[in-house]
Amino acid sequence: MGGKNSVGFLILIIGIILIPFMVTNDYYLGVLIFTAFNCLACIGLCLLMGYAGQISIGHGAFIAIGAYTSGILTAKFAWSPWLAMFCGILIVIVIAFCLGIPALRLKGHYLAMATLGFASIVHIVAVAAVDLTGGPSGLVNIPRLDFFGYVLSSDKQYFYFSWSVVALGVYIAFNLINSRVGRGLQAIHGSEDAASSLGINITSYKVQVFILSAVFASVSGSLYAYYMNYIDPGPFDVSHSILLVTMVAVGGLHNIWGALIGAVFLSLLPEFLSFLSDYLQVLGIAYQPDYDTLVYGFILLIIMLFLPEGLFKGFGNITQFVRSIFKKFSKRASDRVK
């Protein structure tokens, strides 16, 4: 990890340590735990979309597969949660491999639709395969994670655990980006012809990063299942896959920090909006949680139209802009003094 990124990483770690001391309300701590799950999935998706340049609107499906594998194996077959999570990873690797080989030969719109179709199929199966998944009424009695018998029972413990996994994910992602393989992926994004002329096996690399990003999603799903102790198909529909793409795009495709910022921003947005609704009430606007979707849509659209590089880069540009104005003023002021 280079200079700026290690600073960012340090801030992340300090933030993780301090937040539970500042947020004592269990509800908000819970929201932040969900945020961690989204962050984890978004890191993987960012590697795939931002660095390798391959779109997937199907990562909700990998979260679902991770969650259901963990849920079914622990609740119905009393497996250890860790083993079930590992098994989920293996299943996701196999599925991502089988899907990735034909799908990643497709480009742009076709790939987007293929992955969207896949997400849809997985959701339908989760609803319809009642014997296995419990269908719409869901799957109960999923245990919490434990460390050698020490159960992560409080939200605070789970917060530390899930955000540590996020930090590990960030660490892995930066290692990958600055490695031989990571450069290969970025090369594929830049020019597939040039990349292959340098000996990079494009198909293999695309499939590998697709699998890696699916594994991130799978772990996120498993952690979700162990936190909720209950899963149903509701959160795993197509709109969740779309939400993940939205998070990565809003934050900034070409940067892991961007993906994290996007995930945090959109995960906390509903809370922020409900907080804001009290003030809007005063202005005579009756804000309801139903409007959230609309707000999401507009935020995504506005960012894509005006800050296509995402919030992260956008902030950078804005600070640069402000700095340049400031410089101009200070220069003018110093000229005047002369």
């Binding site: 990958l176 393989v181 340098l198 990063v209």
Partner: peptide, 12 residues
Amino acid sequence: HLRSNAGIFYSC
């Protein structure tokens, strides 16, 4: 690329 060997796992 061709003069080095790291795979995706070790790169991570």
